[in-house]
């Protein structure tokens, strides 16, 4: 039975990823998209969309954030572990919000 060398084991780790250089063209495209989305979100806030106003604003912000994370922060080219780390952060944030909201949503319902 042969044991893996340290190097082989490191290669199998989920932290492992090949270095990937993102080209300036991609950066430029993302940069343009971010500016366009900024204009869009300002414009959308002046439209009467009712309940959809905050939804559109959040959707655009999330899109922008995802673009930054994927390309400027190289997550698209990163290891599975790094992707999981980012996901864990947002998951825990959602836990904080949803579990807190269970209280705030139902507080006015009174006693059973």
């Amino acid at each position: 039975m042969t044991e893996p060398t340290r190097r082989e084991q490191l290669d199998q780790e989920p932290t492992h990823h090949e270095e990937h250089i993102v080209s300036p063209k991609v950066y430029g495209l993302i940069f343009g998209a971010l500016l366009i989305f900024t204009a869009l979100t300002v414009g959308a806030s002046y439209l009467e969309l009712g309940i959809f106003n905050p939804i559109v604003a959040i959707a655009i912000a999330v899109t922008k954030a995802v673009l930054v994370i994927l390309f400027f922060m190289h997550i698209k080219y990163s290891s599975r572990l790094t992707k999981l780390t980012v996901a864990a952060g947002f998951f825990t944030f959602l836990v904080l919000i949803t579990m807190t909201m269970t209280d705030y949503i139902s507080r006015a319902w009174g006693l059973w």
């Binding site: 579990m99 209280d103 949503i105 507080r107 319902w109």
Partner: peptide, 22 residues
């Protein structure tokens, strides 16, 4: 551990329904 914190708050005026979940 991240899903149970409000059990420290049962008598503080959190909603009954939320307290049940926690």
């Amino acid at each position: 551990g991240f899903f149970v914190w409000a059990h420290h708050m049962f008598i503080m005026g959190v909603s009954n329904y939320s307290a049940l979940v926690f």
